[in-house]
Every structure is written in C-alpha cells, then in structure tokens.
Design a protein around this nucleic acid. Structure first.
Lengths: 146, 146
DNA sequence: TCTGACAGTTGCATTATGCAACACAAAACG
DNA sequence: CGTTTTGTGTTGCATAATGCAACTGTCAGA
C-alpha cells in the first residue's frame, strides 16, 4: 500500500483512464452516431438488465433519479424504450423497463458504428491482447466501490 | 476484420470502456476533490506539456476553443495557471501556458485523492497486473485516430 | 505595409446534471 | 381495513460544460 512502485502504476492507470474518458465522451459528442453517449449507455444497460427500473439505472450510473427520468422520457418518446406496467419482482415497486424492437435495432447499429471506430484504434492488437484488456477492464469495473 | 471472435472482444472492450467513462465522470462529479474532472484534465495536460497553448489543449481534448478558453479563464482566476507572454517556438502564436506553484500543489493533492480511490478498486491486483493494464491503456490512447 | 491565417474571447443556445419539493403507489403496521 | 411509512418517478429551478458563430487582435509572409 505504501509501495512506491505500486503508487506509480496506479497513477499511470488513473492518468490513462482519464484520457480514455475525456476522449470517449468528446468523440461521442461529435460523432453523430445513432445514439448519443448517454442514450447508448442507458439502452445498453436496459438491454443487459431487462426489467430494470429507473432507480436501478440511477444507482449503477451514479446519477440522480431526475436525470435518469428525463433521459428515459426522451427514449420513450423516441420509441426506443417501453415502460412496463409494474416491476415483476416481489417487494419491487416502479416500472420495469424494456427495449422496443426499434430500441434493439438502434442499439445494434450504434454498437456497429462504435465498434468500427474502436477497431481502428485496436488495429495491430492480437486477439489475446484485446481479450486481456477486456478482462482487466471488466475486473476493474466489477470492483466498483462507492 | 470480419473475424467474429475479434468483433466480440472489441465489443467487450467498448462496453467496459463505456462503463469506466460513465462511472469515472459521475464519481468525479460527486467527489469534492481539489479539482473537478475537467480542471484536473487541463492541469494535468499543462503539467505534462509545459508551454502548450489553449489551441493545443482543444485539439488534444477534442473540445472547442471557446470551451478551453473559458475553462482556462477559471483556472487563471484561481491562480493555478499562468499564461506566458508568447509561445516559445518559432511560427507559434498564442500564449504559452504554465502552472503556478499553487497549480502544481493542487494537482498533486488531487492526484493523491484520486489515487486512493482507484487504489481501493485495484486492491488485490499484483503490481504486474496493474502495470499491464496501464500499458494496454497507454497503447490504446496512443493509437488515437480522429 | 498590407493581407491572410491563426489564437483567443464573448454572446447566445443547448444539453446533462443536481437538488428540492411534490405526487403517487406499494408496503407495513395498527 | 385504514393509516402511516417508504420507495419511485416527475417537475421547477439552477448550474456547469459545451458548441457555434461572430468578433478582436496579432503574427507571418508577400
């Protein structure tokens, strides 16, 4: 913990993560992909967690409920997300969210668009290297403490 | 390129990067660190590129000049950044930016604060694993194409 | 010296966000 | 069964970050 070398490695990771985030958000702002950064995030989350509620998204994203509410409102108006009558589980309140066919379609196209951009930056990487990065990032995201 | 396995790895990397970015920005928004996310980014860039100009930052960050101008204005008012008279290089116009002592100090403290947060999430990682992630992220950021 | 290109600034608009207050529904409790 | 409590979602208001366009100033080269 007080290891100097460890600190330096962590600092580098932090710095690189900051760069990644900065550029990712900036690029997503310019590129007129089918879905904006926030929209893509929300739709991806709903796709991965069918039946989730707005509150679940807010908790996972670290956003205020009001922000998610408004974002979802936009997605519903666009016909990408459909709020179910009631969340299925017991003791669960709120509306269960689900993607519409159009939502799934637009997400797929957005993923395609973003994949090609990332693929350019990953040109020259072996599949094993890509997988290793994916695994490390996944591990980092799993160890989420807040 | 049309390799299905490769696509999947890239998609995973993209998804994890999106999660990283989302959470990094959200956390930075809440945590009352010495410097906000944007401020930290700018100050870090100036620290790493002494004598850079506002335009350089805008280009690297993918931001509009006006945005950088305003952000820098705030940093100058806070006494963290000092605009030099003229950029040193030949054929270079504009003002060369440099950190003040106070800027360097606040950056160091901000780095400390963020390091401890990241260190928690990296608990259990070996130094080699941390370094490998740092190297992979650096390689990814270096291969920046836009 | 004059002109064009570039750096920086500012006005105006938009988007994402937070907080607080509210409305509503479901659960818990008597 | 009625009341209270708790959790979910929405809305009004404010703020921060950003982009675009227009403007100013300045430096370089003809």
């Amino acid at each position: 913990m007080t290891d100097q070398r460890g600190q330096q490695g962590i600092d580098t990771v932090y710095s690189e993560l900051e760069t990644v985030s900065r550029r990712a958000v900036a690029r997503a702002r310019h590129k007129s992909a089918p879905l904006s950064f926030v929209e893509h995030s929300l739709v991806t989350f709903i796709a991965a967690n069918p039946g989730c509620r707005a509150t679940d998204i807010a908790a996972d994203f670290g956003l205020n409920r009001s922000t998610v509410s408004r974002q979802l409102g936009g997605l519903v108006e666009l016909g990408l997300v459909e709020p179910g009558a009631a969340a299925g589980g017991e003791g669960r309140r709120g509306q269960a969210l689900a993607l519409t066919d159009r939502g799934r379609d637009l997400l797929a196209r957005s993923v395609d668009a973003n994949r090609s951009a990332l693929a350019d930056r990953l040109a020259g990487w072996t599949a094993a290297e890509v997988d290793a990065l994916a695994a490390a990032l996944h591990r980092l995201n799993s160890a989420f403490v807040d």
